[in-house]
Design a protein around this nucleic acid. Sequence first.
DNA 1: CGTAAAATTTAGTTATTCCTAAATTTTTGT
DNA 2: ACAAAAATTTAGGAATAACTAAATTTTACG
Lengths: 225, 225
Amino acid sequence: MKKKLTISTEDYLKTIYELTENGESASTNALAQRLKISAPSVTGMIKKLASAKPALVEYQKHQGVTLTREGKRAALEVIRHHRLLEAWLVQTLGYSWDEVHEEAERLEHVISEDFEQRIAAAMGHPTRDPHGEPIPTEDLKMPADTSVPLSALRSGQGGIVTCVKSSETDLLRHLEELGLVPDAEITVMDYSPFDHNLTIKVGRKTTVLGLSITSKIFIEVESGA
Amino acid sequence: MKKKLTISTEDYLKTIYELTENGESASTNALAQRLKISAPSVTGMIKKLASAKPALVEYQKHQGVTLTREGKRAALEVIRHHRLLEAWLVQTLGYSWDEVHEEAERLEHVISEDFEQRIAAAMGHPTRDPHGEPIPTEDLKMPADTSVPLSALRSGQGGIVTCVKSSETDLLRHLEELGLVPDAEITVMDYSPFDHNLTIKVGRKTTVLGLSITSKIFIEVESGA
DNA sequence: CGTAAAATTTAGTTATTCCTAAATTTTTGT
DNA sequence: ACAAAAATTTAGGAATAACTAAATTTTACG
């Protein structure tokens, strides 16, 4: 017998936000997979969120789900909590960027607005978390981000790493060793069209990275070919 | 329709701990009142805790409930979390002692052991929280405390305030104005046997306090009459 | 010591949120 | 276009933890 855990509304909304960032609607199955529950459970909960007093999601059968204004607001609130917490755990308690995710994942749901404001102020209102992810502003707008995945770059292109979109401990530790962290300057030395591998220069190190990694690293492009 | 729902096992255990600190067992009704749920709900949950794989409480019909070794351990863990968090919120985020309770009440259930150790170390392993309550040690022993309620003192007696056992914002603010905070030195100037009021001198201030307040202030006695 | 009051437990109900199995709708491949 | 595959919803059910009302046990006191 395992522990039964119930998924919070906040987690549903946050996950829907993440799945709809590309502009598309989130599918029942995609949500089920992310939340690690069955698809019927997702359908049931979505119906509930859609018929809440101020509706949190927009839903039509077989058409996937999107966030309403209210739902998006709630999602951004949780994401702001999460990212501020990650920044703060790293800055004040000496966590490394690969350790903070789980802790923030639990804390994000229980901190007060007061707490949020205190840590934001204590850090001088940071705009990015330790992974480089933008922190939603106090009025819950997600800052624009013009960076592109490293996987979209080709030989001769390069720029500054803005963000590493991963919470996998092992990957993050590996990337840190390579110097592939936010603010690092990189240049693409070579591109292999067969397997999409990129040869990257970071500082004086050179590495070959596959698509599963390069698609998670985001770059503010500096120079063309 | 209110939101407030399910009470965590941790809250049951913490409350049972508090109600049994005097050595007696906790009654169903006392628990129900503290947890703000009905008595039958308490009976049901207690039965569950008593028949858990390692039992968390000892229970016999109509005889009240006590904590097992395991249950006590779990309760002290939560209490340690709570008190470390209160200390830490005050020390690092500028909370005042009357603001920390609610925040700690929510955070105490979600922080990791790692987090606990980090904040304890960052504060130099404090032994009391901002109200003066002793913090259970890392191996979950509650430190002995020889202080007595102010209400037990009489004219001529006095000592050092060790602890103010209250989380009521208004009372705490009032006591802070009076200087009735941990480490303050006080002397009892007069005792009224009719209403149990005590006239107290704190620094150069003199105040009359009723039993509802003096029973919540704890003193390490220094001098007899 | 016996009964009324208080405390507690039992019984039965409700609400929530998950599940599996089956039905249905949509998408895909030829 | 059509059948197979995939995705999604419907249907029905289980577990949890709360509730109210009623029954029972304990306690208090005249």
